[in-house]
Design a protein around this nucleic acid. Structure first.
Length: 643
RNA sequence: GCCCAAGUAGCUCAGUCGGUAGAGCACAUGCAUGGUAAGCAUGAGGUCACCGGUUCAAUCCCGGUCUUGGGCUCCA
């Protein structure tokens, strides 16, 4: 048998080893026993191996050293095994499901005879510390699947036997640490003492295989890092994220509320939140008109017949609010597309008119299960910044390119420059569950990919993530806790235009099917504003701040002058408020800081006499007194620059 | 919808091992006119989520319901 050959990154000498040698052996050979000690695993090609794993193919090797970022997922995965070991010691009847590493930590799902309390977490954590101290090695073992099935069946681990059957390989790997054995692909740290520092966070319910028809398991979440300091820093980050949670800031800054007696998922926009929305909507409309969109409005309810035609009554019924009026069924609209199509179809359309771009800030209602509602991010009534572009097949790519550019421009205007872009395409293995022909899908998917290339955005192809009626581009923004929320979506729809018979008259005088691109750039105003609140931690850029400046009087004597200052600001289009309460200046400043108002203009006797204001900005603090006219110009200029 | 946890003043929270409750902030009134992150005093404000049960007595114990939060699934 041939020896395997390994190029080692950062080293001249290549190594030859017999097939089946482990990464650990390779490390010792390449680096010597001493320098190999901090090695935790290795990356060979695009796969990560643990030290215990045998190598079967030649390749270029990069060793993963303890203390590097690459070592973290391995440590976290081992931490989940150690947690499972502890749970098994405390609850021998526990059955194991799965326990992977995730961003920032790990979890493990258990089927337990009783529910876990927060005190149990402390006990489990203590037991984990003991296991770490025992510092026993993680040993890897390969077993024929048939034998592994017997092994786990004997132990009553029914989830593991399910997994082995689902994997369907002739053999599987097991990892052993002390008395604990688990079906596992690895990799793991060499021994339990090397998992680093961890902390169990909370428990949650989770269905086996994520399917609500299956049994509910108990999931324990934990976080794991290299050092105690990193764990503390992570916990602090969680706390900071909690502080900028849009629900908390929404109440603090008096932006919006959800009222129990009205129901969950329905947003009340308070004056300041409404101002924020008003500014966003104004900007949005202007930008759309600049780009050749036409604004439309469509009714909130429509006879159910329409929704039968579109297929929604069949495919979307459980998400729709149905009404009965005069013994006729009506639907509260869950989408704007049919309305826009009806406007399109109100007359014959010529190819000369295309593309037609209808845009609407359309409020829709969708029934969502109560458990998924979340502040403004996931609601039952929301306003989409919706548009439908009707065009010919030749125009698709240009239109999509413009949509993507436009979406990026809007996101950047509001201060988002880190976008996560997905191209969601059909599942190539199961093309039957999609509407439309193969040719349509090929053209549409290629058009979306080409558009992304042309715009120069890097993206991730998500196979099988397309909706049944067409492929789509999704752009996600992250919330305070790093959860992604879809905002921009650009999608093709093969279904509704065909069902509603949408067409145009071509140069040949014949009818041709019109292609429809559906897009929302901000997504929904609710979700977008929620994300915006968290992104800026409520500290909005001047141009969208609901209150841009507050005038603070030092004493009651300054009120008449302060009123004149306010007038001047308002004339210049600055959103300004007057704080003439009988409080000391320090208290007024504190309140304005807490309200996150960008500019505080302090007026006392000195300013009134010289027609000045003392500017204090949230960013820079006390900037000293300048002439009133100059201050107004400064604020206006900054707002105009959208900084 | 499902699993777990939590619901006490407008907000943030304490408390009662069963004898109908308290702080800070906010609010109101009065005093104070204070120059860059909290001036002082007084006052008002509660069906302790809701419905049952146990008990001489329930905010507290038990059961159910509703709501909220963390997850699972789904989506803008």
């Amino acid at each position: 048998m041939h020896e395997l050959r390994f190029e080692i990154e950062g080293s001249e000498a290549a190594q030859s080893l017999a097939p089946g040698s482990t990464v650990g052996e390779l490390a010792e050979r390449a680096l010597g026993a001493e320098r190999a000690r901090p090695v935790i695993g290795a990356r060979v090609g695009d796969r990560v191996f643990g030290l215990q794993e045998p190598l079967r193919e030649s390749g270029t090797v990069r060793f993963i050293m303890a203390g590097t970022d690459e070592a973290l997922p391995i440590m976290r995965h081992s931490a989940s095994h150690i947690m499972a070991t502890a749970v098994k010691r405390l609850f021998p009847e526990a059955r194991l499901a799965i326990g992977p590493s995730i961003d920032d930590g790990f979890y493990y799902d258990f089927d337990l005879p009783r529910t876990l309390s927060p005190e149990d977490l402390a006990t489990i954590e203590k037991e984990m510390a003991t296991i770490v101290k025992e510092d026993r090695p993680f040993e890897r073992e390969e077993m024929a699947s048939a034998q592994a099935l017997d092994f786990f069946r004997e132990r009553g681990e029914s989830y593991k036997t399910d997994l082995i059957e689902r994997i369907g390989e002739p053999s599987v790997s097991l990892y052993r640490n002390g008395e604990f054995v688990d079906l596992c692909r690895g990799p793991h740290v060499p021994s339990a003492g090397r998992v680093g520092q961890f902390r169990l966070l909370h428990t949650a319910g989770a269905y086996w295989e994520g399917d609500s028809r299956n049994r509910m398991l108990q999931r324990i979440y934990g976080t794991a890092w290299r050092t105690r300091e990193e764990v503390d820093a992570y916990l602090k980050r969680l706390e900071e994220a909690r502080q900028r949670d849009h629900r908390r800031l929404g109440a603090q800054l008096d932006l919006f509320s959800v009222q129990e007696e009205v129901g969950g998922g329905l947003i009340f926009w308070h004056p300041k939140g409404a101002m924020l929305r008003h500014i966003i909507e104004g900007f949005w409309k202007e930008e759309h008109l600049k780009r050749g969109y036409q604004l439309v409005y469509t009714p909130h309810i429509a006879r159910a017949e329409l929704w039968h035609k579109t297929g929604h009554m069949d495919f979307y019924r459980e998400n729709m609010y149905l009404l009965e009026i005069d013994q006729q069924d009506y639907v509260l609209k869950p989408m704007n597309c049919p309305g826009h199509i009806l406007i399109y179809k109100a007359k014959r359309r010529s190819y000369r008119e295309l593309p037609i771009r209808f845009a609407e800030l359309g409020t829709v209602y969708r029934y969502e299960k109560s458990g998924v509602l979340h502040g403004m991010m996931r609601v039952r009534g929301f306003t989409q910044d919706d548009a439908h572009i009707f065009c010919t097949p030749e125009q698709i790519v240009d239109e999509v390119v413009e949509c993507v550019r436009f979406g990026r421009y809007l996101a950047e205007s509001f201060g988002f420059d880190n976008l996560q872009v997905d191209l969601s395409v059909r599942d190539p293995k199961n093309t039957t569950k999609y509407a439309g022909t193969d040719e349509e899908w090929r053209v549409a998917e290629a058009a979306l990919a080409e558009a992304l290339e042309r715009v120069g955005l890097s993206y991730h192809v998500a196979e099988g993530e397309a909706v049944f009626y067409g492929p789509k581009i999704d752009v996600k923004l992250m919330d305070a806790l790093g959860r992604p929320w879809q905002c921009t979506t650009v999608q093709f729809d093969f279904n509704v235009p065909r069902r509603l018979d949408v067409n145009y008259i071509g140069p040949d005088g014949k009818e041709h099917p019109t292609v429809m691109v559906h897009r929302a750039l901000l997504g929904s105003l609710e979700r977008f504003v929620g994300t915006l609140i968290e992104h800026h931690a409520g500290d909005f850029p001047l141009w969208i701040a609901p209150v841009q400046a507050v005038v603070l009087t030092v004493t009651d004597d300054n009120v008449p002058y302060a009123r004149r200052v306010i007038e001047r600001l308002k004339e210049a289009g600055v959103r300004a408020e007057l704080d003439d309460r009988g409080e000391k200046i320090g208290a007024k400043i504190r309140d304005a800081e807490l309200a996150k108002i960008p500019y505080m203009l302090v007026v006392g006797r000195r300013e009134a006499e010289a027609e000045k204001v003392a500017v204090r900005s949230r960013r820079l603090g006390d900037e000293g007194a300048i002439p009133l006219a100059e201050a107004v110009d400064k604020i206006v200029a900054e707002a105009k620059a959208r900084r």
